[in-house]
Design a binder for these strands. Structure first.
Length: 462
RNA sequence: GGCCCGUUCGUCUAUCGGUUAGGACACCAGGUUUUCAACCUGGGAAGAGGGGUUCGACUCCCCUACGGGCUGCCA
């Protein structure tokens, strides 16, 4: 089986498009099929190489790998024309000499009078001998009676009366193919067996089915998925905030979290909420896709991302962090920082929902001496606190470097002073991390090691 | 205007004729805690409206309302 994602390169990769791509990818990857990419760049005015690059970059970041080289629809124009001529030859299409302005005028008048705007070309049954020597479009000779039926894997059986569908243009009078025709020819030639796309194409499916029928090509399975809406239930647009996938990357959502969240948006597998890619591939099925549009909920996205961060392997998480730093134009990690981060990551995963939050928690490992405490942390380093830190120092020098021993040493000193361990911990946190929020102070000590820990405490205690 | 699709807690959803309508996010209360989180326990919260069909409808049919899509020699 073969699926595909076919975006128009007219801008960034839309979050909705990313989900469509994800569904196609999951379906193919879960079944040992192929996932192809086609760039629908026939609109020369709006298509740009930059947009194509942005889309490929977005898919790569999301972790959706495609098979083979991306296909350019524009590059296949001659093939589209060839098929249109073949349809002409077999009588499935005809030359229409009606000038576009004339058709437009007809439609305008029909609309104004409340009549059907369905245009029936007078050239449909014309004798070729009467053809003028003039520009013509090639139109599909669509059936005028009966029905066109799509057994949609998501929407169910959808029926159109053929009398309500007009003869669509396949090839324009300038010889270029229309979108409707190019899509069918490409999907057929690429061997696409399952078309999973937004339900804004549901009506198009009827017209495309007519082309498949005219060529005698087998109809692929259609699955028209509902679009993603904004929190207000309206179609997702820029006024809702972020719509481009790259914006989500820059906000620090990990790709694994986005994959998980997006998969659950409009699709479900029982009560499963947080799952791995392997599980998603194994479970994903067209029958699990809902029919109603889903709204984007950033809070749940964050929750899922938090869980995925907690579940991530350190190496994979490090990769996500480095991609995040690059995407947000921050300085890359030094080799020493990489090592330190790798050692500290297990302390930061459980308590972060986004990558910047991981970095925030890992600050103690990334920073180097002298640690300059933030104002909030500095308050925990008054004269009394520094005295206590000095008192604690010899205990730490002698303690075995285990969490239990370190905690016992601190508890002993705190008790001796008749103070709560929490207050001593705050001072240690300020000395070790320079922050008022960090992982457990004893965990930080284990990661930093005895020498670094004592050096930082010495710096702070004066 | 015509055609087509949709409508379960605030949000994502389960249910595929018989359930006290389940789960998750969010929210509220409590617990745990060296910070922030995380985590644990408990709580409130839903079938758009109206007709049918049926012993019995969230589930099937019809109408209405409200959303959305298509209706191009755009994609």
């Amino acid at each position: 089986m073969v699926t595909r994602f076919a975006p128009s390169p007219t801008g960034y990769l839309h979050i909705g498009g990313a989900r469509t791509a994800l569904f196609n990818w999951l379906y193919a990857r879960g079944r040992g099929g192929k996932f192809l990419l086609r760039i629908e760049d026939t609109d020369r005015a709006r298509s740009t190489p930059e947009a194509t690059a942005a889309i490929l970059r977005g898919l790569a970041w999301l972790g959706l790998d495609w098979d083979g080289e991306p296909v350019s629809q524009f590059a296949r124009a001659s093939r589209h024309a060839e098929v249109a001529r073949a349809m002409l030859a077999r009588g499935a299409a005809y030359k229409c000499f009606s000038p576009p302005e004339e058709i437009e005028a007809f439609r305008a008048a029909a609309r104004a009078e409340g009549r059907s705007t369905l245009f029936l070309s007078p050239w449909r049954e014309a004798d070729p001998a009467t053809h003028p020597d003039a520009p013509f479009a090639i139109r599909l000779k669509a059936p005028r009676t009966g029905q066109t039926v799509i057994e949609d894997a998501v929407q169910g059986r959808v029926v159109w009366q053929n009398a309500e569908l007009d003869d669509m243009v396949l090839l324009r009078s300038d010889g270029t193919p229309t979108y409707m025709h190019a899509v069918v020819v490409d999907d057929h030639d690429m061997g696409v067996t399952h078309i999973i796309r937004g339900d804004d194409h549901l009506t198009n499916a009827a017209r495309q089915a007519q082309i498949y029928a005219a060529m005698g090509w087998p109809l692929p399975v259609f699955a028209h998925i509902p679009l993603i809406h904004g929190p207000d239930g309206k179609k997702l647009s820029k006024r809702h905030g972020a719509v481009g996938l790259e914006e989500y990357q820059k906000m620090g959502y990990p790709a694994a979290g986005l994959r998980n969240y997006l998969a659950r948006l409009g699709w479900s597998h029982g009560d499963a909420e947080v799952f791995s890619d392997a599980e998603a591939k194994a479970w994903f099925d067209l029958s699990g896709i809902g029919r109603a549009p889903a709204r984007l909920d950033l809070r749940k996205l964050e929750y899922v991302c938090g869980r995925q961060i907690a579940l991530a392997e350190d190496g994979a998480l490090l990769g996500e962090i480095e991609a995040f730093l690059a995407a947000t134009a921050q300085p890359p990690l030094t080799a020493a920082q990489r090592d330190a981060l790798l050692r500290a990551l297990h302390l930061c995963k459980e308590r972060a929902r986004t990558l910047p939050q991981v970095l925030e928690m890992a600050q103690f490992a990334l920073a180097s001496r002298p640690i300059v405490p933030e104002p909030r942390a500095a308050a925990a380093l008054d004269d009394v606190s520094r005295g206590i830190l000095r008192e604690l120092t010899p205990h730490l020098q002698n303690a075995s470097w285990t969490r239990e021993a370190l905690e016992a040493a601190a508890a002993q000193v705190a008790e001796g002073r008749g103070m709560a361990l929490g207050r001593l911990a705050a001072s240690l946190r300020a000395a070790l991390a320079g922050r008022s929020v960090s992982p457990s102070v004893f965990d930080m000590m284990l990661v930093l090691g005895r020498a670094e820990t004592l050096a930082r405490i010495g710096d702070a205690a004066g």
